[in-house]
Design a protein around this nucleic acid. Sequence first.
DNA 1: ACACGGTCAGAAAACGCTTTCTGCTAGAAT
DNA 2: ATTCTAGCAGAAAGCGTTTTCTGACCGTGT
Lengths: 342, 342
Amino acid sequence: MGKPPATARRAGSTITDVAARAQVSLSTVSRVMNGSTSVDPALAERVREAALSLGYSASPLARSLVLGKTQTLAVVVPDLGNPTFQGALRGLSEGASRESYHVLIADSHEQIDEERVLAIEARRRCDGIVLCAPRMPDDELAELLPLLAPVVLINRDPSSSAAASVAADYRSGLTQLLQHLHSLGHHELLYLAGNEKAASNRDRLSAIADFQATHDETRIEVAPCGVGFAEGYAAAETVVASRTTAVLAFNDLVAMGLLSALTERGIRVPEDVSVAGFDDIPFARYTTPPLTTATVPVEELGQQAWQRIWALLNGRAPAYNLSFGPLVVPRGSTGPAPHRPA
Amino acid sequence: MGKPPATARRAGSTITDVAARAQVSLSTVSRVMNGSTSVDPALAERVREAALSLGYSASPLARSLVLGKTQTLAVVVPDLGNPTFQGALRGLSEGASRESYHVLIADSHEQIDEERVLAIEARRRCDGIVLCAPRMPDDELAELLPLLAPVVLINRDPSSSAAASVAADYRSGLTQLLQHLHSLGHHELLYLAGNEKAASNRDRLSAIADFQATHDETRIEVAPCGVGFAEGYAAAETVVASRTTAVLAFNDLVAMGLLSALTERGIRVPEDVSVAGFDDIPFARYTTPPLTTATVPVEELGQQAWQRIWALLNGRAPAYNLSFGPLVVPRGSTGPAPHRPA
DNA sequence: ACACGGTCAGAAAACGCTTTCTGCTAGAAT
DNA sequence: ATTCTAGCAGAAAGCGTTTTCTGACCGTGT
């Protein structure tokens, strides 16, 4: 009767407690808990009972330390507020949880100079890392990768180094969007650019340059803009001034901001000007008019990233690097070019 | 010359390696790395040098084990795709990173029966936990809380138990929205309900009941709907059939879906019917027409949650439980009630 | 000159586990 | 009946740290 309390205590019961209660050694408890072969059924039962009544479960920390694996994956994103990364994170987290892996998330809040240390720090507490660093300079990235392995890149071409990666092909996506607008008769286009340093922006610019090179009749203007609603909204001015007939927004957010500003000014979309976004975020379908855009299956991007890191974690070779070719989704915000009286 | 490699190796250097290289004991290395008082400057320098050349940094795992703290915080959300939780997560993550805390995120994917074990599992790898579980039954929550401490609740009234919490006051928000519409002359309202079990939905219903009780002249219909675009879109049918003059959508997503469907049918907002959302997600400002809604400062919710868990982690008492009173943001989607020929 | 106290470095214990190694017991084989 | 072997439980080492404890050395005070 004067024995230690029978009820499970706050947080604390350790393997030693269980061993004591079941009158066996630590080793035996460990074996039972890990379903090891060959331990006397009677003992095993006693141990399980003791564990249960003490509410015991092994400390993940101690376990990780000795096993050398944490069952945790790090994910670095530049901005949790960005639908693209949210989607990728979702896909990733789903895959991870299915394998009972945990996800440590590090938001660099666009502080690209801190990304390096953030990634390293996060990586140290995990078994692997998935990195989204669209604006990290190529050389810094290359130098960082070896320290991070196993690592999977999202939306970054691992140029030199042979890292695993999954990405959306922004180049191809924009090319298709250009063709879409071109086929509608637009020859005066405006591209509202995102962040100069971002790889995804460079890809788009490259697509524009190529298109321009083979289409003399078309003029594509480029205006710096940004990546959010507000910037898109503010760009209405530029759009009007440019007297172009179609606008390629850096992404759907920008497009939506722009759409809103144009509507306010009484400029009709697509009758007066066509607007195309990029990404096909869930909202795009529900704008007025619904937004023409290029799909980027962000959630699948995350899933594929998980698949690759999972392979890596198990010592297998990851699947081939993947590049999703976005598809144009023609919706109401783009239409035939208006006949403009010069 | 025949010494061990001087360059930093992959991942592996341990404190022992550093000690060996610096010709001192482990204890000394540890002291130096932790900026401990009183260690001979010469030795200290030698240690630092060794650590640097080996690329050493202490294993967070081992450190956590002995220190009894992981520098990590768990966050459980029901759905990473939901802007509300995204915002809260952002706010939280920002605060955490400022204190160089890490964030482990667990997405229950709306599997409310797994939330319990998910939370416990996550909690075990962390120093504390922030829980968003809008649909977990009260009794289960109450039973869970003691196992999770220190814990902060988001959007849950900790009824009996005295847990720290931050929440949006959905009741008050909806009341204000009702008043807003009432003052515009609407007497035939329709509420598109969210998930039956969700606390935030119950709060709204309660607000409706109260309002109804004091406003005989007003009829408020309730229709089950959902929490996403698609459900809002699909609800257009119901809205039209109800012949009400104003719709209170469960949230902005539903409102946007509805808006889109109404526009497609040529129903004018707000001339024919007023639509109000809830949450004031960033998109709400940019719909056509801009969406009247009630602000819920989700990011601040996250920040405040961080403040409280941080206090708890430091053995201080958390600030008083917080309830944000949403503010109505009147925008273009609500207007005077139309004169309807009976 | 000797005892005493104060610095500071190393030895060792502890954190909570897993796993190898050791040793005991009992059953089988000769 | 005796030895070999298999089977299973406990002892102990090890994971990489921090921190307490121990002990050496040096300076000071009498």
